[in-house]
Nucleic acid binder design. Structure first.
Length: 469
DNA sequence: CAGCACGGCGCG
DNA sequence: ACCGCGCCGTGCTG
């Protein structure tokens, strides 16, 4: 009952305010970005089409589904099916290598992982990757977002004087009961998947801005899920790492690669794989999954995946991770036991996740259920924390509003909460938020905290939405 | 024309 | 075929 109040009811007012008020965007920024992407895509698609041999042109034209506006092109570069025909049937790219089929087995996959493997074989592959990145960003973000923006008066603040200014704002819908783990979901548009990982993607993030006279303030839990994993599993090593304030990815690299205490792990070949292990383990990582993931990492770094990264090598790495963090193995096993025995697993706060899949007659379904059982308490506890934080901060923000300080919640992305604040108070609000995050499990009366490792949060103030500080 | 499954990909 | 989401374009069907 207490959980229903704290986890389900208390976040609602803040969610309502996020949805109702929205977040401001710079429409011209997106329009300019769309124009640029369009320009680059036209060049890339023409280049890609130029790889069609002359004698095959008619065949491609007849099979493509292009509208009259772009019928100067013989094929539709957005179509995976048509690309597969060009690459694998006509050009013979990757012949002699093992090529992944699509799930339904109709054709060879043209997905990123596959293309990364093949991009040294022929320049058309890299061009396709570049085209894909741009097509994704344009259709999902730079074209769509300005369309969704509505003119909206916003409370702003100039030199301490409050007034109302015209802004163009996006009103996403945040769903409280959509996910199986307790996380929130966001739709129309989804504000929880705005790009950040690539340089080009970060230009899209930059189109999200505070109301005039305000700053964006973002606070997130640092290494939230691993800390939760450390607590729930009571693993000695994991707990020690966080209590001593060490970098968990670096420490994991030390463990699995047996690096002497006086040496630093190499970023690409040691720290990055260790990082993927740390995240992946709680997802039920398989050797093949790890190998795939590392393939992408190396390809992104512009290097070929080294010969010695085989499935067996990945399996050993996972085994080494397990022996380094044996408490985590026991913990995951316990969750799997509960899933099989009771059909449910639960978070630190007692939020329940049903996992009927573990009793399926189908092996694949069963195994997926067991992975979900291992992951759900961790991901779900993280979601619980955000719910508690929102419940705790709501009265803080309302109090500030009553005092005449403009502060308004904008969005939440699982372990992160973003608000806008009038400039003078941004730093203050950031620090209040960090406090709220870090004391999420601290009893307000006794000051006691039962968590086995420190809970850390990071905050930043921004004039536009960006990564880092 | 709308609706759907699929392949693909953005985020934590 | 590694957890949790939502959205895009294609290609097909009713």
């Amino acid at each position: 009952m207490e959980n229903v109040r704290n986890l389900d009811l208390l976040p609602q007012p803040m969610l309502q305010r996020m949805m109702q008020y929205g977040i401001a965007i710079d429409r011209d920024h997106f329009r300019e970005l769309s124009r640029r992407l369009d320009e680059e895509m036209r060049i890339l698609e023409a280049e890609i089409c130029s790889y069609i041999p002359p004698e095959k042109l008619q065949e491609f034209i007849s099979r493509s589904n292009l509208s009259s506006e772009d019928d100067y092109l013989p094929m539709n570069v957005d179509s995976g099916a048509q690309l597969a025909r060009l690459f694998f049937d006509v050009m013979g790219i990757g012949s002699g290598r093992e090529l992944k089929q699509t799930k339904s087995g109709n054709r060879i996959s043209t997905g990123k992982k596959q293309l990364e493997q093949l991009k040294r074989g022929n320049p058309v592959v890299q061009k396709t990757l570049d085209y894909r990145e741009r097509a994704k960003l344009k259709s999902t973000y730079t074209d769509a977002l300005p369309q969704l923006a509505r003119e909206h008066l916003a409370r702003t603040c100039w030199c301490g004087l409050k007034h109302w200014d015209t802004t163009y704002r996006i009103h996403s819908e945040f769903l409280s009961t959509r996910t199986d783990t307790g996380r929130f979901a966001s739709k129309n548009p989804n504000l929880q998947n705005i790009p950040v990982r690539t340089e080009l993607g970060r230009l899209i993030r930059a189109g999200f801005i505070p109301s005039p006279g305000c700053r964006l303030v973002g606070v997130d839990f640092s290494q939230e899920e691993m800390r939760i994993g450390a607590h729930l599993s009571r693993d000695r090593n994991l707990i020690r790492i966080f209590n001593e304030g060490l970098d968990p990815h670096e420490e994991t690299a030390r463990i699995v690669f047996k690096i002497p205490a006086d040496q630093k792990p190499d970023k690409l070949s040691q720290r990055d794989p260790a990082r993927h292990l740390n995240f992946g383990i709680f997802y039920g990582l398989t050797p093949m999954g790890l190998q795939d993931q590392l393939g992408v990492t190396y390809a992104t770094a512009g290097t070929e995946l080294p010969e010695w990264i085989t499935e067996e090598w990945c399996a050993e790495l996972i085994a080494d991770w397990y022996s380094g963090y044996s408490g985590v193995v026991d913990y995951i096993d316990q969750q799997r036991y509960r899933a099989r025995r009771y059909g449910i697993v639960w978070t630190m706060m007692g939020r329940v996740r049903r996992v009927p899949e573990v009793r399926s007659v189908h092996r694949w379904i069963r195994e997926a259920g067991l992975r979900q059982a291992g992951n759900a308490p961790i991901q779900g506890t993280g979601a619980d924390w955000m719910r508690l934080v929102m419940g705790k901060l709501e009265p803080v923000f309302l109090e500030l509003l009553n005092l005449g300080v403009w502060v308004w919640p904008l969005l939440t992305i699982h372990d992160e909460l973003m608000v806008e604040v009038e400039e003078l108070y941004a730093e203050y609000v950031r620090d209040r938020m960090i406090d709220a995050f870090e004391s999420v499990l601290t009893d307000e009366d006794t000051g006691e905290c039962v968590f086995r490792v420190p809970i850390k949060a990071e905050g930043k103030m921004m004039d536009y939405w960006k990564k880092g500080n």
